[in-house]
Write a protein that binds this DNA or RNA. Structure first.
Ligand SMILES: [Zn+2]
Ligand SMILES: [Zn+2]
Ligand SMILES: [Zn+2]
Ligand SMILES: [Zn+2]
Lengths: 141, 141
DNA sequence: CTTGAACCTCTAGTTGCTAGAGCTCCTATC
DNA sequence: GATAGGAGCTCTAGCAACTAGAGGTTCAAG
């Protein structure tokens, strides 16, 4: 059985984050020592590693909750898991597209600026009106 | 002079968002009608359009605050503005790189999955351990 | 047996808004 | 001029996914 600190060290998830995951029900309530400190078995390490890795791949905690509950039912079809991953892939692709548009706009305004005064600054000018933009870039970045 | 609703309609920024920008000092306190309702001059439209466009390009409100105060000093060097935009470009490029790594990992796990049961699902397996990943993908997405 | 690191709970802060309650005001129609 | 209802007002709370701090307890090394 590991203390929360050891669990944190072996998984790379910070102590308060582990407690937070327990609080929101991503991790089951930990066992406690006589002095009320959390104790974890190896199983918790795996579950936490799963969460961390999924987070690193950009999944939301809600998606992860769903994926965890699926992984607890090995005989079920994996269709639901694949739907979640496919949706995530869609988000990622979409975001890349939008960020590439932003990159172009930022590069354009920076190369146009001749490093003079604010009144001549193409960066400030570009921010002031969208007319010269090549992309629509609406919605969240 | 425009009501907050008209200002919202002409700029595409929602009414509560305009009030929020005023609250945090991005917009100056609006004049008020006899009945205490906000009234805006054309200048406010430009300022708000600047904020909105900068947000669309991914700048933080703190950066925008800085950019706005620079744009109020036309005789100054624009170096500071260019620094902010360059930094923003850096963020964007970095994020794109990380998202492209995520895209690859997600595509890899999805193409490997044979659509069977959870116990054979390559998506769940890939989330369970990072060993087979091609990228480190640490840090925030 | 003492010391200090690690643990506990609870609250509040972060970013950039958004939603709601409960009220007042403005304007259009009759 | 009365009235209906849309738009405005303030204030509080909530979202995601944590992070930081206060103030107190427990554990483990020496
Ligand atoms: Zn410039
Ligand atoms: Zn634009
Ligand atoms: Zn699968
Ligand atoms: Zn990985």
């Amino acid at each position: 059985m590991l203390s929360i600190g050891k669990l944190s060290a072996t998984t790379g998830v910070k102590v308060p984050t582990i407690r937070y995951y327990e609080e929101i029900g991503l991790l089951p309530e930990a066992e406690r020592s006589a002095g009320n400190q959390r104790l974890y078995a190896t199983k918790a390490q795996e579950r936490l590693a799963f969460i961390r890795h999924s987070r690193e791949l950009g999944f939301s905690l809600d998606d992860i909750r769903e994926l965890l509950s699926l992984s607890d039912r090995p005989d079920m079809s994996c269709a639901a898991a694949d739907v979640i991953a496919t949706r995530q892939l869609g988000f990622v692709k979409d975001r890349i597209t939008r960020l590439q548009a932003l990159q172009q706009e930022l590069e354009r305004m920076l190369t146009q600026c001749a490093q003079g005064t604010i009144s001549d600054c193409k960066v400030i000018e570009a921010l002031s009106n969208h007319e010269n933009c090549l992309h629509p870039h609406h919605g969240e970045v």
